[in-house]
């Protein structure tokens, strides 16, 4: 399948409140020569319904895969939850004939069919596997050498390994490598792969905020000037809640949370206004001042 054209699957969280991720991702992908085609029709990837009905999750995911097959394009997602779900269901349905048949019985009623002809990938996987590190590096015209940042992968880009499998969940390297491609330093810190807590919001907010606080403490301890995420939920968890956590637990952070394509976009020479920086809750002006120098 063509490596330069993808169907973009936005998911639900990004349209709901994480526009900066989308704005910056579209910018950097265009710069890298990737063409994005909009989904013809949308429904949630299915992941939120998995706890209530595994089968409903399968059907919702399969609908999206079948729609993408009609377009003959691979899917790119910005949300690791969507990527993980679509990847997993794609493989399950490709490998299990009986399951495919039963899901297809449902899809048939609305004129759809899952055939198993496309792939679904997260932005990060597209950057590292399809575009390649060299091309990402070549796109950098303003290396961010003055910056030291920390990465946060989150869970669903890495686990369960059996279905995601493009990086090592115990010692992930891809995001670090991509951060270093921008010229920034990527710092190691304690418990880098710990969950952000977002899935517990609404069920038990206190546990969720304690997890986020723990992470911010570790990131602060190594003096990272920003934290880089690649998941809309992790981003909401830290960016939206940082002030709340500061108040609740009597902490001070002031650590801006950037979407990875915002960082890459700066290194590509885009202006902060073009990358949705105004959407961030935690003020990022300090690092923006620092990156201005190399113009």
């Amino acid at each position: 399948m063509s490596k330069g054209r993808y169907l973009i699957f936005l998911g639900c969280a990004i349209p709901y409140r994480v526009s900066a991720f989308e704005v910056s991702a579209r910018k950097v992908l265009a710069k890298l020569g990737v063409e994005l085609v909009e989904m013809p029709e949308f429904n949630c990837c299915g992941l939120p319904l998995d706890p209530v009905s595994h089968e409903a999750m399968l059907v919702l995911a399969a609908r999206n895969l079948a729609l993408a097959e009609q377009k003959g394009l691979d899917i790119i997602t910005l949300c690791p939850g969507c990527a993980g779900t679509l990847k997993k269901v794609n493989r399950m349905l490709k490998e299990d004939g009986a399951l495919r048949h039963s899901i297809n019985q449902r899809l048939k009623e609305v004129g759809l069919e899952f055939k198993g002809t496309i792939e679904a990938k997260h932005l990060m996987q597209v950057l590292i596997e399809d575009i390649g590190l060299e091309r990402v590096k070549d796109s950098v015209i303003k290396p961010l050498t003055a910056l030291s940042v920390a990465e946060h992968n989150g869970c669903h880009i890495l686990r369960p390994k059996e279905f995601i499998g493009f990086d090592d969940p115990e010692d992930p390297k891809t995001l670090k490598t991509l951060i270093e491609a921008t010229g920034a330093r990527c710092l190691d810190y304690l418990e880098e792969t710990e969950c952000c807590g977002a899935p517990s919001v609404g069920v038990n907010d206190k546990i969720a905020l304690q997890l986020a606080r723990n992470k911010l403490n570790h990131v602060k301890a190594v003096k990272a000037e920003a934290m880089i995420t690649i998941c809309p939920f992790c981003h909401i968890m830290y960016d939206t809640n940082e002030l709340r956590i500061e108040k609740m637990f009597n902490e001070t952070y002031g650590i801006p949370i950037l979407h990875y394509p915002q960082l890459l976009g700066l290194a590509m020479g885009f202006q902060p206004e073009e990358l949705g920086f105004s959407e961030l809750r935690v003020d990022a002006s300090r690092i923006l001042d620092k990156t201005k120098g190399g113009k």
């Binding site: 029709e41 949308f42 429904n43 899809l107 609305v110």
Partner: peptide
Amino acid sequence: LPPLPKGNSESIRKTL
């Protein structure tokens, strides 16, 4: 940003 793709309520209902 481009307009958001729309969901097809009736079709979703049918498949579930």
